[in-house]
C-alpha cells in the first residue's frame, strides 16, 4: 500500500516546572491512500498531541517534537520551516476539531472564512473561490449554499457548523484529513448525519482520514484500522473487525468491556481499576502494568516492545512474547 502518512519514532515532549512530560513517546504508524485509521485512547493518552504534531501546531515553547519524522508523501513535516507549513496546512493536511464554534471565527461570515482558505491555497480570485465555496457547502448538505455563505457562525446549529468545518477542510482536496473528535459535541441523530457525510466524502475524494476519538462505536462505523494509545505509546494496531472480535492488549480488552451495550444481555461493567497515570510519571516497566489484571513480575521490570504477530497485528504486551518480535 502506498502510505500517505508515515510517522516513525515520533516523540513530542513538554517541559513543565523543569519536568519533562512525554506526551507522545515514540510512536510509529502509517496511513495508506484512502484509508481511514482511528486513533483511540482516553484523555491524556497523547492522541490529540499526535495530531497537533502532524499539523505542526504543538504549543511552543513548552512543547516540542524532539525526535522522529512525520512523512507526508515522503516529505518530512518535522523539518519543514514554519513558512512552508502555511502551504501544507489546509491544503495537504486539513483538520476538523471537536467544537466547531470555537474553531470558526465568530465575526466573519461563513463565506469569508471558506473563500479565504480557497484563495490562499488554490491561488484563485474571489469569484472562483466563492463558486467553489458554494459547491462545497452543497456537497456537505446545505440546501441553500449562497444564503449560508452570508451567514455568521452563530446562526448555524452545531451539526451545521461541523458541516461548514468539513466543507472548509475538504475544499482544497487534502490528502489527509485529521478529524479530532468530530462528532463528540453533537447529538446522536446529528452525529449519524455527520458520520454518513464523512464516509461519503472520503470515498468520493479518496482522502485518507486520521480519526481521533474515544468513542468505540464511532470507530466501528467509520474506521478500517485502529491504533490504540495509552500514556503516549501505541499499545495495539489492528484491523477494526479483529480488534472488536479479539482484542489483544489487556487495555484494549478493558476498554471494550467498559462500554455498556445498546443491545443484548446486560451484565455488570468491567471497569479498569485505577486511573490513567499522571503525565510525567515514569515507570520502569509497562505503563499499563499497575492497572492490568494480567500483569506478572516481568511487566513491572521491563518495558515491553512491539510484538508483530504473523497476521500483521501489533501489540505491546509480554503476553505475546515468543511470537515474532520487530
Amino acid at each position: 500500500m502506498n502510505a500517505v502518512l508515515e510517522v516513525s519514532n515520533l516523540k513530542t515532549y513538554f517541559k513543565k516546572n523543569k519536568k519533562t512530560i512525554r506526551a507522545v513517546d515514540g510512536i510509529d504508524f502509517e496511513i495508506g491512500k484512502g484509508e481511514t485509521v482511528a486513533l483511540v485512547g482516553e484523555s491524556g493518552c497523547g492522541k490529540s498531541m499526535t495530531s497537533l504534531s502532524i499539523m505542526g501546531l504543538v504549543p511552543a515553547p513548552a512543547g516540542k517534537v524532539v525526535d522522529g519524522s512525520i512523512k507526508l508523501n515522503g516529505v518530512d513535516l518535522v523539518q519543514m520551516p514554519e513558512k512552508k507549513m502555511y502551504d501544507i496546512r489546509g491544503k495537504e493536511v486539513a483538520m476538523i476539531f471537536q467544537e466547531p464554534m470555537t474553531s470558526l471565527n465568530p465575526v466573519l461570515t461563513i463565506g469569508d472564512q471558506l473563500t479565504g482558505v480557497i484563495m490562499h491555497h488554490l491561488k484563485v480570485n474571489k469569484k472562483t473561490a466563492t463558486e467553489k465555496a458554494a459547491e462545497m457547502l452543497g456537497i456537505v448538505g446545505f440546501s441553500d449554499p449562497l444564503k449560508t455563505l452570508k451567514d455568521y457562525p452563530h446562526r448555524l446549529s452545531g451539526g451545521m457548523r461541523q458541516r461548514v468545518m468539513i466543507a472548509m477542510a475538504m475544499s482544497c482536496n487534502p490528502k489527509l484529513l485529521i478529524a479530532d473528535e468530530p462528532t463528540t459535541a453533537l447529538d446522536v441523530t446529528i452525529q449519524a448525519q455527520v458520520l454518513e457525510l464523512m464516509k461519503d466524502l472520503s470515498k468520493k475524494f479518496s482522502t485518507s482520514i486520521l480519526l481521533i476519538t474515544h468513542d468505540l462505536g464511532v470507530v466501528s462505523e467509520l474506521a478500517e484500522r485502529v491504533i490504540v494509545m495509552y500514556a503516549g505509546q501505541i499499545v495495539e494496531i489492528s484491523d477494526v473487525d479483529d480488534l472488536f472480535e479479539e482484542p489483544l492488549h489487556p487495555y484494549t480488552e478493558g476498554l471494550i468491556h467498559s462500554i455498556p451495550a445498546i443491545e443484548g444481555e446486560i451484565t455488570r461493567l468491567q471497569s479498569i481499576k485505577g486511573n490513567v497515570p499522571a503525565p510525567g510519571t515514569v515507570l520502569p516497566g509497562c505503563k499499563f502494568a499497575p492497572r492490568c489484571s494480567k500483569a506478572f513480575a516481568r511487566c513491572t521490570e521491563e518495558v515491553p516492545g512491539m510484538y508483530v504477530r504473523e497476521d500483521g497485528r501489533c501489540v505491546r504486551c509480554f503476553l505475546y512474547d515468543g511470537e515474532v518480535v520487530e
Partner: peptide, 14 residues
Amino acid sequence: QSLLSAVPVIRKGG
C-alpha cells in the same frame, strides 16, 4: 426508533 438506530454500535464478527 430513529434515536436508537442512530447510535453507533460496535459490530463484532460481521
